[in-house]
């Protein structure tokens, strides 16, 4: 069916995510974190943080709604039954803590067809309420036999 590359360079409206203490704890427990910085706000405060600290991989939560726009964009036409998440990179800035508000903007970095497969690379940039970049994500996906 071919790969539509017209969306390369497209960016999506920014999303805003309010980081909540219980959500951080829920995520931390689901991935097996035991560090009290993620689970106990008093321990986090004693260590100098305003509240519980999000594990670095919590980036998938605060950028989730933004990246979803790219996955579900009809211009990209991704067939989820054939979708494989092949690679992921995150680069982190300052830690995210409960109470932060994280804005994320996603863009289409590249779309290529190679050997009959579609390669989609999306980039997410997340900033906190102080304007600091807290995470840049590169999401690489293959749609087999696209």
């Amino acid at each position: 069916m071919g790969v539509n590359v017209e969306a390369v360079g497209k960016s999506y409206p920014p999303t805003l995510y309010a980081v909540g203490r219980e959500k951080v704890k829920e995520y931390a427990l689901a991935v097996g974190e035991t560090n009290p910085l993620h689970l106990d706000h008093e321990a986090a405060r004693a260590a100098g943080y305003a509240d519980v600290v999000a594990p670095p991989m919590f980036a998938v939560v605060y950028s989730g709604a933004a990246i979803g726009q790219a996955f579900f964009d009809p211009d990209n036409g991704i067939n989820f039954a054939l979708l494989v998440h092949s690679g992921q990179e995150f680069r982190w800035g300052p830690l995210v803590v409960a109470g932060d508000e994280i804005q994320t903007t996603v863009s289409v970095a590249s779309i290529e067809e190679r050997a009959g497969n579609g390669f989609y690379v999306f980039e997410s940039v997340s900033t906190n309420q102080d304007g600091h970049t807290v995470c840049v994500g590169t999401w690489t996906n293959v749609v087999r036999g696209a």
Partner: peptide, 29 residues
């Protein structure tokens, strides 16, 4: 896959002394 990546991340942060230590992680599934 991102749960498994979180285990890779946790291996790094537990070894290096906390979440602030992890500056970048790039994985291939």
């Amino acid at each position: 896959g991102l749960w498994t990546m979180a285990q890779v991340a946790r291996a790094q942060t537990e070894a290096a002394g906390g979440p602030h230590t992890l500056r970048r992680l790039n994985v291939s599934f």
